[in-house]
Every structure is written in structure tokens, then in C-alpha cells.
Design a protein around this nucleic acid. Structure first.
Lengths: 175, 175
DNA sequence: GTCTATAAAGCGATAGAC
DNA sequence: GTCTATCGCTTTATAGAC
């Protein structure tokens, strides 16, 4: 609901209707109200990315395989651009001030984990950091563009081109 | 105000305080209320980009110079990432349904104009279209990342790397 | 053209019955 | 643990004085 309506747009009435719970029940589970609900969502997102994307990037024996896995998981998670990134949307709007620490951490850890994998694949430290930053920006921008143009093919094209930059042809194991 | 607070966040009270006008005056100028105000803002943005960025891309005699101008104007307009893109923010949130046509046009015209310049600089038609799409995504993603990390250097780095991809070294006139 | 006053609706949040 | 009823506040929007 936060992803579809934004933090302010996801009213307690909508949240109640969607969960099938009354306001009393929602406040029983989340005494901190809507802010606490959003924090729980952001924590769940962070845990998902840590397990499925960040950890494999840092710990995978084959960095190129980990990067390809990241691109595959990313495409699936965002439904090929049909779904936006809640953290990115919060970063651009109201949520930035309220959830700034979680938003900053989401992108910082992603960048650092990807830079780590790139470095282990043979890229220099500084170039790895810049390339990682460029990759995260490409993904976030691809989501904006896909959503704006309503073109379901946009996000896929962006990811394919991104893979070409992260894993130059002729490098590492065959796909 | 829409850029800083979002469409829903920019309440008539805030808009009145910032403009120094009462609600009656605001409704006198914009009978359609907040929606009409946002449409006027989006129209002004579209006109600005058309004049300063899109038209030069399509009509400039030197396509590389037009692309460099686009990057320079973009950096200035978004204050090196200190300012976000209202159209991109609307695309990710509530505004998408209300202003979908204007949002779609903003990105479509930008992509087409840039692809036109790239094509005239010697890039193949299809590659020009994909490269343009990649560039707009890099800019939008760079804004998301800059805003999320609060790092004022992020956006500049993204634009520098982008220029390297749009204007490969050794191509065209010297900078 | 700008203002104040007000209407009607929705918001987040709370209280208390069950 | 879930519900209904309600509080206090803010929202968009309108009416009408000046």
C-alpha cells in the first residue's frame, strides 16, 4: 500500500480495508501508528535485499555470478518495472525526512556490496565504487522511466545494457 | 512547493503562506484548485525544458555541443542533485494517475530529442534510442541517489560518466 | 482581486465495550 | 485481539463582505 499510494496516500482507512482490520487492531499491532508500520515495511525490505542481493554480492565465490543474480533478482522484485522501489519513492518525497537513516542505509549498503563484488572481479577500487553508484542509479532511473512511460520493456532494456557495463564481454566465465 | 512537499503534501495552507495569498485569491487565479496549480507548474517545466534542452538537441548544428549543453543545463537546473525532478517524483507517486499524460510526454520528448542528437552525431538509430533512454534513466536515478545519500557529489559523478558514454573520447570536436 | 468565515469530508489517533 | 464510536485537527473548496 505504501508503494502504491505513498506514505501520506496510504491512509488508515485504506490500510484497514486492505488488511481487513479495524483501526483499533492496527494500533494494537503498531502502537506507533502509521510511522511504525512504514518502518516495519522498510525493515522487511532491507532484510529481503540483504539476504537475496547484498550478502551474495559480498560473499559469493564468483562475483560475476553474484552480479548476474543481483540483476535477475532485481528484475523479478520490481516486476520488470511494473513495481516501483518504495525506498526510492520515499527518498524523493515526504518520507526522506522521516526515514532518512533507513533510506540512506538501503542505498549505501547496496552500493558498497556491489562495489565489493566488482572489485573482486578485477575492477579497481575507485572505478568499482563509481560503477556501483552508476548501476544503482540506472536501476532507480529505469524504474522512474518505466513508470512514467508505462512501457513494460523499458526496465528490461536498461538492465541488459547495465549487465554489459558491469560484466564486460569476454570477462570471466561464460554465461 | 510541489517539488519539496509532493502534490498531497503541498497543502493550500502552505501554498497560501508561501505566496502570501489567501485561499480565496488562489481559487480566483486557479478555479480548478490544486490540480490546476500543479498542471500550470508542469506546463512551465515542460516549456523550460523545451526551450533550453529539447529544441537545442533537435536543432543544434553541432549535436555533441547540444548534448554537452544538455548536461550542463541539467546539472544547473537540478542544482547538482540538491533539487529533485518534480516530474520524476510525480511519476513515482500519486501524481502518476492525475498527470499521466504530461509526465509521459516530458520523458518521451526528452528521449526522442536526445536520440535525434545522438543519431546526427553518428550513432545508429536503434542504439541512439537505447542510449537516450539509458541517459534519462541515469539522470533520474542520479537524483534519487543524491537525495537518498545526501551526497552532493553523487550527481556530478553520474553526469561526468554519462558524458563519457554519450560522447566517446576521440569523437567530434574537442571540448 | 483579496480577505475572513465556514462548510463538508477525511485524516490520525484514542477510548472503551466485548 | 477486534470492534465501534468519537475526538480534535487538517484538508479542499465555497460564500460573501469589502
Amino acid at each position: 500500500m505504501f508503494r502504491e499510494h505513498g506514505f501520506e496516500g496510504a491512509s488508515l482507512s485504506l490500510l484497514g480495508a486492505r488488511t481487513g482490520l479495524g483501526k483499533g487492531s492496527l494500533y494494537h499491532a503498531f502502537p506507533g501508528g502509521k510511522v511504525e508500520m512504514a518502518e516495519a515495511v522498510l525493515d522487511a525490505i532491507e532484510a529481503w535485499f540483504e539476504t537475496r542481493i547484498y550478502a551474495p554480492l559480498r560473499e559469493g565465490a564468483d562475483p560475476h555470478a553474484a552480479i548476474r543474480r543481483m540483476l535477475r533478482e532485481t528484475d523479478a522484485y520490481f516486476r520488470s518495472g511494473g513495481r516501483i522501489c518504495l525506498v526510492g519513492a520515499f527518498a524523493l518525497t515526504e518520507g526522506r525526512d522521516r526515514f532518512g537513516d533507513r533510506i540512506g542505509r538501503y542505498f549505501a549498503v547496496w552500493c558498497d556490496s556491489l562495489a565489493d563484488a566488482l572489485h573482486r572481479s578485477g575492477v579497481g577500487t575507485r572505478e568499482a565504487a563509481e560503477l556501483a553508484e552508476e548501476a544503482i542509479a540506472a536501476i532507480q532511473g529505469g524504474l522512474v522511466l518505466a513508470r512514467a512511460t508505462r512501457d513494460s520493456a523499458t526496465f528490461g532494456r536498461i538492465l541488459v545494457r547495465l549487465e554489459g557495463r558491469l560484466i564486460p564481454a569476454g570477462t570471466g566465465a561464460a554465461r
